[in-house]
């Protein structure tokens, strides 16, 4: 017979009902959902954290929060259709009810980055997990040095948040004429007159103070590995490089074992991890 300590959450495996308040079709395969708690307080979160979204009878998936941390009353997620659950989420209409667990996981190191230049690198659906950090930087713009958002998409039609990208070009700027938002596509189409090529090609021209720069990146692992190599070439210390990792997740609380990456549970120790934490693991095959 043992007596055990009390938990912080009684049942971390049970979702709370949230109603879909707004649906925005971003691109052909990406949808943004704004959710409101049916009961209880709104869900406060730190930029970089994720939730588990449950669709009745279909299943549950981990999705990064893409909204403004200062506006928690609307819980915002931007979702790409890649499987059965994300497809069901993308097909939801206003008024539908989903289950939400969370928020879970680690967050972007925005406190440590104060006074630093900040380089954000996003590939494809990697932009939404960075958007809460962008909002944070906008709310506290004077606390940071130069800010850059480097964003790569497949085609111009796949670019997310195009109106905000335009606004951020001014609002994220540190000086008149600066271009903090730099976008590239893999394949140009239509009247695209921007850059074509890999997002890593945008790193070399940046004006930064490398020893006082923090980099945040989200995207396919291969993209992040090459991004790290480029950022290292610029002289940014390893410990200032942060990644948002993705692994299979079922529980989000360290019980199911699926998301392990070496010693880390990506759900609990991540998704945001400093490069030295994962260097020995993400550079190997099939870990």
């Amino acid at each position: 017979m043992v007596s055990l300590p009390s938990p912080i959450v009684v049942d971390p495996m049970r979702p709370r009902p949230f109603r879909v308040a707004r649906v925005m079709r971003e691109t052909a395969d990406v949808v943004t959902l704004e959710l409101e708690a049916q009961t209880g307080p709104p869900l406060r979160f730190q930029p970089g954290q994720f939730t588990m979204l449950y669709v009745f009878g279909v299943g549950e998936v981990p999705i990064s929060i893409s909204g403004d941390p200062q506006k928690p009353e609307r819980l915002v997620h931007t979702i790409r259709k890649v499987g059965a659950v994300t497809e069901a989420l993308c097909n939801l209409r206003k008024g539908a009810v989903v289950g939400v667990r969370g928020p879970f996981g680690s967050h972007w190191p925005l406190e440590q980055a104060r006074g630093h230049d900040v380089v954000m690198v996003a590939g494809g659906i990697g932009l939404p997990p960075l958007r809460p950090a962008i909002y944070h930087l906008l709310h506290h713009r004077q606390d940071y040095g130069r800010v850059y958002l480097l964003y790569g998409a497949r085609t111009p039609r796949d670019l997310l948040f195009p109106e905000e990208l335009k606004r951020w070009q001014y609002t994220l700027s540190h000086a008149p004429g600066a271009t903090p938002v730099r976008v590239t596509v893999d394949r140009a189409e239509g009247d695209w007159d921007g850059a074509v090529g890999l997002v890593t090609s945008l790193i070399a021209p940046l004006t930064i103070d490398p020893s006082r720069t923090t980099a945040l990146m989200v995207g396919p692992e291969v993209m992040m590995r090459f991004t790290i190599a480029e950022l290292r070439k610029r002289g940014i210390p390893e410990e200032n490089l942060y990644l948002s990792m993705e692994r299979n997740m079922k529980c989000a609380v360290g019980f199911c074992g699926h998301c392990q990456l070496g010693p880390h549970f990506v759900c609990r120790d991540g998704p945001v991890l400093a490069f030295p934490q994962v260097r020995d693991w993400m550079t190997r095959k099939e870990v």
Binding site: R225, A229, E230, D280, T283, K285
Partner: peptide
């Protein structure tokens, strides 16, 4: 470990 970026896909 291999240097970042220089590894497999």
């Amino acid at each position: 470990p291999k240097e970042a970026g220089g590894a497999h896909v």
